[in-house]
Amino acid sequence: MVYSYFPGCTLKNKAKDLDAYGRRSAEALGFTLEEIPEWQCCGGVYPMNKDEIAVRLSSVRALAYAKDHDQELITMCSACHNVIKQVNNDMAHDEYISEHANNYMKSEGVEYHGETKVVHYLEVLRDEIGYDKVKEAVRNPLKGKKIGAYYGCLLLRPSDVMAMDNAENPSIIEDLIKAMGADPIVYAQRNECCGGYLTLEDKAIPEKRVKTILQNAKEQGAEMVITACPLCYYNLKKHAEGTGVEVKYFTEVLADALGVKEEN
């Protein structure tokens, strides 16, 4: 299966690991990420308003590209996934936004109404490849490793649009952890916000959030948490000190398990 891949700005810079390990793992598992040429930054956060159209266009362009190539659009970054999937939903169901966005896109010869299916890398692992296959492909089982999933907010919410998993008690990452041979640690704070971009507003806010999250993970038995979001990764890592919990991208751990992790 070949996917139109939207890496996003951070995966080209600070989160190169998330991208590189993801690509290698995909190769090992037999699916192909075909990077969308000239993709533009998704904006990082979904515009929660009805009247801003231009900020949605980078998503629409990527979506229309995937549609033209008859491919599903895949992302690895939670934020890109959230923005693009919500914009896709707007294009399919919000008449005002769809009409105005299409007016903009006319000059580029694009007409788009939400036809593309947007999937996250994790969904491909679960639904296309299947965790049984992932398990078979594991070369270095992470035996005895106690890993907590950290979902954050963007992968799952709003659940009626994201529709990836039970937003309040998800299992898509836990099941991956299991497939990799490790023990998933369930902790309630795994879908509570890390503080996100407020790190630029007041560092104390994410610090408090992260302490709550990682302490919860720790006391439930986690030695490590894994995430799909570069901003979560940053906030968690920055304030992990003293909690004794390691923070990693899910793709890094996956590449490790699949035996394709080389030094970047």
């Binding site: 039970n166 309040e168 309630a188």
Partner: peptide, 11 residues
């Protein structure tokens, strides 16, 4: 009530 697991019924 599995979709109301912010109340941790499933946990």
């Amino acid at each position: 009530i599995s979709r109301y697991d912010e109340y941790a019924y499933g946990q």
